[in-house]
Computed example of a mutant assay.
Amino acid sequence: MANVFVEARPKGRPEGSAIEGYVVEDHADNVLGSFSTQEKAIAWAKGNNHSPVVARVRHLNDKKKPDHWRSA
């Protein structure tokens, strides 16, 4: 199973602004799917044999730093 990243959208949104949805991305920032909730994004990833990870802190989401992510 490959790790995929569940991220909130819009990317780079100001602190306190609303989240419009979530995407599942691979390590190369390719969007594999868009979802209305984080729960749906995680369920889709698991259902497609991926290992979803989510950011420990929303603004710290460097995919090259494993400490920024936790398993979902």
Rank of each mutant, 00 (worst) to 15 (best):
residue 1 M to G: 14
residue 4 V to N: 03
residue 5 F to R: 02
residue 5 F to V: 00
residue 5 F to G: 11
residue 5 F to Y: 15
residue 5 F to I: 00
residue 6 V to A: 02
residue 7 E to N: 15
residue 8 A to L: 08
residue 8 A to D: 10
residue 8 A to K: 12
residue 9 R to A: 11
residue 9 R to Y: 12
residue 9 R to V: 13
residue 9 R to S: 13
residue 9 R to M: 14
residue 10 P to H: 03
residue 11 K to Y: 07
residue 11 K to D: 06
residue 11 K to M: 09
residue 12 G to W: 02
residue 12 G to A: 05
residue 12 G to E: 10
residue 13 R to S: 11
residue 13 R to V: 03
residue 14 P to F: 08
residue 15 E to I: 14
residue 15 E to V: 14
residue 15 E to A: 15
residue 16 G to T: 06
residue 16 G to E: 05
residue 18 A to N: 07
residue 18 A to I: 05
residue 18 A to W: 01
residue 18 A to D: 12
residue 19 I to C: 14
residue 20 E to Y: 03
residue 20 E to T: 13
residue 20 E to N: 12
residue 21 G to A: 03
residue 21 G to Y: 11
residue 21 G to P: 11
residue 22 Y to N: 03
residue 22 Y to F: 15
residue 22 Y to I: 02
residue 23 V to P: 04
residue 23 V to G: 10
residue 24 V to F: 11
residue 24 V to K: 04
residue 24 V to H: 09
residue 24 V to N: 12
residue 27 H to N: 12
residue 28 A to Q: 13
residue 29 D to R: 13
residue 29 D to F: 10
residue 29 D to L: 07
residue 30 N to H: 09
residue 30 N to M: 04
residue 31 V to A: 11
residue 32 L to E: 04
residue 32 L to P: 02
residue 32 L to W: 01
residue 33 G to N: 01
residue 33 G to Q: 01
residue 34 S to C: 06
residue 36 S to L: 07
residue 36 S to N: 08
residue 38 Q to P: 04
residue 39 E to F: 11
residue 39 E to M: 06
residue 41 A to R: 03
residue 41 A to G: 09
residue 41 A to Q: 05
residue 41 A to E: 13
residue 41 A to M: 04
residue 43 A to H: 05
residue 44 W to C: 07
residue 44 W to P: 01
residue 44 W to N: 09
residue 44 W to A: 10
residue 45 A to R: 13
residue 45 A to K: 13
residue 46 K to W: 00
residue 47 G to V: 00
residue 47 G to Y: 00
residue 48 N to G: 00
residue 48 N to I: 00
residue 48 N to S: 01
residue 50 H to M: 12
residue 50 H to S: 07
residue 51 S to A: 11
residue 51 S to K: 14
residue 52 P to F: 02
residue 53 V to I: 10
residue 53 V to L: 11
residue 54 V to F: 06
residue 55 A to L: 08
residue 55 A to S: 15
residue 55 A to W: 10
residue 55 A to P: 15
residue 57 V to F: 08
residue 58 R to Y: 11
residue 59 H to P: 02
residue 59 H to A: 12
residue 59 H to E: 08
residue 61 N to L: 06
residue 61 N to Q: 14
residue 62 D to N: 15
residue 62 D to H: 05
residue 63 K to E: 01
residue 63 K to S: 02
residue 64 K to L: 11
residue 64 K to P: 14
residue 64 K to R: 09
residue 65 K to D: 15
residue 68 H to Q: 07
residue 69 W to A: 10
residue 69 W to C: 10
residue 70 R to K: 15
residue 71 S to A: 14
residue 71 S to Q: 14
residue 72 A to T: 09
residue 72 A to C: 13
residue 72 A to F: 06
residue 72 A to K: 14
residue 72 A to I: 07
